[in-house]
Simulated scan of single mutants.
Amino acid sequence: MLDSLNLDQLRVFMAIVEQGSFSAAARHLRRAQSAVSNAIVNLEGALGVALFDRSGWKPELTEHGRALLADARAVLERVDQLKSRARGMTQGMETELSLVLDVMFPMQKLVDLAARFQRTFPGVVLRLCIDALGGVPQRVLLGECDLGVQGSLQEIDPELVGHRLPEIEMAPVAAPRHALSALDRITDDLLRGHTQIVLTDSSARTKGCTFAVFSENQTLTTDLGAKRALLHAGLGWGFMPRSFVEDDLGAGKLVELDLAACNAGIRSMPLFAVHRRNASLGPAGQWVLDTLLESMGGEIQQ
């Protein structure tokens, strides 16, 4: 009968595996060796299989023991997660945090942030959304996301609190075979005659707005990966976050264009961490905001 199985037996099982012997597990758990042995006998009885071969001087996992080890570890991890989430609830911890990031946000910083979040808040579900332009503040304003990092838009909605983050360096690029790639000091007149790949969005907040658009002919996309693929294919030129195309520039898959009139305002893109004024961030949300400000050197905008 599995009814007699309990978590303590599983923890003893894991301790023996990790410590290498019954006696070492007993010392680690601060129990009598007989209590450890009894726990395993009872566990084996509940499961109906032998977990250890005790014929040698050192206990060895049986075939069944090896097969059940991962399951035992998973059960204990889920129990620890359950306890962590319950403990967090009593302290006002969120059960879930939703974060929306502008598509231009550096991917490695996102990975680092998510990894640190998992280690710090193992009981909180992190939901990540990627959007562009006005889509980020719109999701936060509608309450779909607790916290956002918006790009391109300099103005912060009055209903949001904005925290300025370091700007993203942008590079005008095209495929090596593109007509503009061989030219120096490219003028605005020349740019107008070549298709520009432009990132856009579907939010009402940026309807009719364009950012750093020079060309009369444009191909619009809401996806940065699609924009990169179009640039690779030589179907136009466009501005890309330098961190996103560094490898392409190094490998010669894209080249940086020499724009004569490319001022500092379009060589970088502002980033702002935003959250609603009328909704306080929980401990996990505040940690994400503080981590963004600390790791990227940001400051409160308004």
Rank of each mutant, 00 (worst) to 15 (best):
Q150R: 07
Q150E: 09
Q150C: 08
G151F: 00
S152C: 08
S152T: 07
E155I: 07
E155S: 10
E155C: 08
E155K: 10
E155P: 03
E155W: 08
I156K: 03
I156W: 03
I156T: 06
I156F: 04
D157N: 13
E159H: 15
E159I: 13
E159D: 15
V161R: 15
V161H: 15
G162F: 13
H163D: 15
H163W: 15
E167C: 12
E167G: 12
I168V: 10
I168G: 05
M170I: 06
A171P: 05
V173K: 02
V173I: 09
V173L: 09
A174P: 01
A174H: 02
A174N: 02
A175H: 07
P176S: 10
P176G: 09
R177Y: 12
H178C: 13
H178A: 11
L180S: 09
S181H: 10
S181D: 11
A182Y: 08
L183Y: 10
L183P: 08
D184Q: 15
D184T: 14
R185P: 14
I186P: 03
I186T: 09
T187W: 10
D188P: 09
D189S: 13
D189L: 12
D189H: 12
L190M: 12
L190Q: 13
L190E: 12
L191E: 02
L191N: 02
R192W: 05
G193A: 06
T195L: 02
Q196T: 00
Q196F: 00
I197P: 01
I197L: 01
V198E: 00
V198H: 00
T200R: 00
T200A: 01
S202L: 14
S202F: 11
S203W: 06
T206H: 03
T206I: 05
K207M: 07
K207Y: 07
G208S: 07
C209V: 00
C209I: 00
T210L: 03
T210C: 04
F211A: 02
A212N: 02
A212L: 02
A212I: 02
A212C: 03
V213N: 01
V213Y: 00
F214Q: 02
F214R: 03
F214K: 03
E216Y: 14
E216N: 14
E216S: 15
N217P: 07
Q218C: 06
Q218A: 04
T219Q: 06
L220Q: 04
L220S: 04
L220M: 08
T221D: 06
T221Q: 06
T221A: 09
T222I: 08
T222G: 05
T222Q: 06
T222P: 04
T222M: 05
D223I: 07
D223V: 07
D223L: 09
L224V: 10
G225K: 10
G225S: 12
G225I: 08
A226S: 15
